[in-house]
């Protein structure tokens, strides 16, 4: 058993628990986007960031990955944390201005309009679909392609994967609705993008 404090509340959890799990067990809400309880944590959206103080030294960590430690002091709502979350959600709102989930989170965090020129992306690259396909369906059909801002989710050769069993897991976990079920099969973003650019060229 490890005891720590989260937002001043002293709690005890078993070793190996993450801060996020511990917080949720005790009803403390931390926003997340790339986390799902049945999947491995990815630590990429950084929205679940919290401040931890240990031996008088404070730093920001992502709660979905950080393991609890004896005597740890966690602040889930400090000004530093809120400021970071606002910064992150502003970036996501710039990328995916039409996503309802992002809009709702932005509103919660008090960000109404991003200060950058908006993009028209649908996917935030949280990787939930990739992990569902690997870890739950065990089909391993999706992965990331390319890097940086060019990064996207795709199946090999940008083809609709033949081995897809249409379990729908990817569409179910997708926070932005980038993956849809059309005619009983998932329709991926790259397919729509291909179509769109085809229409433009034609």
């Amino acid at each position: 058993m490890i005891t720590l404090t989260i937002d001043g509340k002293e709690i005890g959890v078993t070793e190996g628990t993450t801060i996020l799990e511990a917080a949720r067990m005790f009803g403390i809400e931390i926003p997340t986007l790339c986390y799902h309880p049945v999947l491995s944590a990815h630590g990429s959206c950084r929205l679940c960031s919290v401040e931890v103080v240990q031996r008088g030294w404070s730093r920001v960590v992502v709660s979905c990955l950080y393991p609890v430690a004896q005597g740890l002091e966690v602040k889930t709502n400090s000004e530093r944390v809120l400021r970071l979350r606002r910064g992150i959600i502003e970036l996501l709102l710039t990328r995916c201005p039409d996503s309802e989930r992002i809009q709702a989170l932005a509103q919660q965090l008090g960000v109404d309009k991003p200060r950058f020129e908006r993009d028209e992306h649908e996917c935030i690259l949280c990787g939930l679909c990739v992990r569902v396909c690997h870890e739950v369906s065990e089909k391993h059909l999706l992965n990331f392609v390319d890097r940086g801002f060019e990064k996207e989710v795709a199946a090999p050769f940008y083809e609709p994967p033949e081995e897809c069993i249409a379990c729908g897991g990817c569409a179910y976990v997708c926070p932005t609705g980038a993956i849809r079920i059309v005619d009983g099969k998932p329709e991926f973003l790259w397919q729509r993008n291909k179509q769109r650019s085809g229409e433009k060229d034609g």
């Binding site: 990815h42 630590g43 990429s44 959206c45 950084r46 929205l47 910064g87 992150i88 970036l91 996501l92 710039t94 990328r95 950058f116 020129e117 935030i124 690259l125 990331f144 390319d146 890097r147 940086g148 801002f149 060019e150 990064k151």
Partner: peptide, 21 residues
């Protein structure tokens, strides 16, 4: 911006926006 791996949001999106500014 070109070398960011693109995994985390702050780096992928933030470096790009800063470069745009």
């Amino acid at each position: 911006e070109g070398e960011s791996c693109g995994k985390c949001v702050p780096c992928r999106e933030g470096v790009r926006r800063a470069r745009q500014v």
